[in-house]
């Protein structure tokens, strides 16, 4: 400690990697730094992170980046192969496929964000409440979770959308409704490991309410494994949403949703393959990005789950 006269010149690295943090914030930042160093070594995970960041940037700057308007039809230039004017070709209405993909990133990101903001949260609440209270609350909640886990997710999502009517909002609702159970299981398992810990008893002795303990002490501890699982699941969410779009149950035309774009290119696939191929590449790359990122995060945040 004494050797470090000027913290700035000694460098942030020392401050972050010290074994004796001076404050809670320093300890947290140090942990994050250690995680980041481990994460950075996994080149595939970094690639995944870059893909996800690219998705966010493309979605944010879609109108700036897209060379054409996504709905601008040009019937004289239908089904053109990739060229200098249309890098990825044009579709059956002469719309620029690249521009539609760029705008479609917004839809994909929106679906991912909405599902990620709802299903894991619902699972977190159910799982922590069941784990914390135990007894009949646990039995009832986990029985329901187990029952829901045994359902065929994709088919139920299809049935939900069929009932609610096609559309991107209903697709998101259907996906979220069918994907909460695994999160509840994870959150409960994490809660059980800490429920009897001394610091929980200490908080209870100080008079903290159950709500306060669950919100302030238990939920934060479940977050790491939930983030890993959510990230990995997002790849599946993208694929499911695209599948719904492909079947005509998700986003409706003329929205540039990638799955729906594949469906509309399907009839031309033998002659004008790019119409269906390009959106598929987009889905694949983004989905791979989430998979790589989730896989890397799992190594850093959840080493047990090797």
């Amino acid at each position: 400690m004494t050797a470090r006269t000027d913290p700035r010149s000694a460098g942030w690295r020392d401050w972050l990697t010290t074994d004796t943090p001076q404050s809670r914030a320093q300890a947290r930042l140090g942990r994050a730094w250690a995680g980041w160093t481990a994460f950075r070594r996994n080149r595939l995970a970094v690639a995944g992170l870059l893909i996800v960041l690219a998705l966010v940037i493309v979605a944010a700057l879609a109108p700036v980046l897209a060379p054409y308007h996504p709905y601008a039809q040009d019937l004289n230039n239908r089904l053109l192969p990739p060229s200098a004017a249309h890098w990825l070709g044009t579709d059956a209405f002469g719309r620029d496929i690249l521009s539609r993909l760029i705008h479609g990133a917004r839809l994909t990101l929106m679906i991912v964000a909405l599902v990620a903001a709802t299903a894991p949260l619902a699972g977190l609440v159910i799982g922590t409440v069941a784990g914390y209270f135990g007894g009949w609350v646990d039995t009832v909640l986990m029985r329901i979770t187990d029952i829901a886990l045994a359902f065929p997710k994709l088919i139920l999502a299809l049935a939900f959308v069929a009932a609610l009517g096609p559309g991107i909002e209903n697709a998101v609702i259907a996906i979220a409704i069918t994907s909460w159970p695994p999160y509840a299981r994870i959150a409960r398992a994490e809660t059980l490991t800490v429920r009897r810990a001394d610091f929980i008893s200490a908080a209870r002795l100080q008079g903290a309410s159950s709500l306060r303990i669950i919100l302030g002490h238990i939920m934060p501890l479940c977050v790491a494994s939930l983030i890993v699982r959510t990230t990995l699941d997002m790849a599946g969410v993208i694929l499911t949403a695209a599948g719904l779009g492909f079947l005509g149950l998700g986003a409706q035309p003329p929205l540039p949703e990638w799955g729906a774009m594949i469906a509309s290119g399907r009839q031309y696939v033998l002659e004008q393959w790019w119409v269906a191929a390009m959106p598929g590449f987009a889905i694949f790359i983004v989905s791979l990005g989430f998979n790589l990122l989730g896989d890397g995060l799992r190594d850093v945040l959840d080493p047990k789950g090797d």
Binding site: A235, L239, W273, I285, N291, D295
Partner: peptide, 17 residues
Amino acid sequence: LIGHSLPIFWLGLMALL
């Protein structure tokens, strides 16, 4: 991970092609 990232309906189409 790649296998888990491919949309199956698209892969089917491309395989048919």
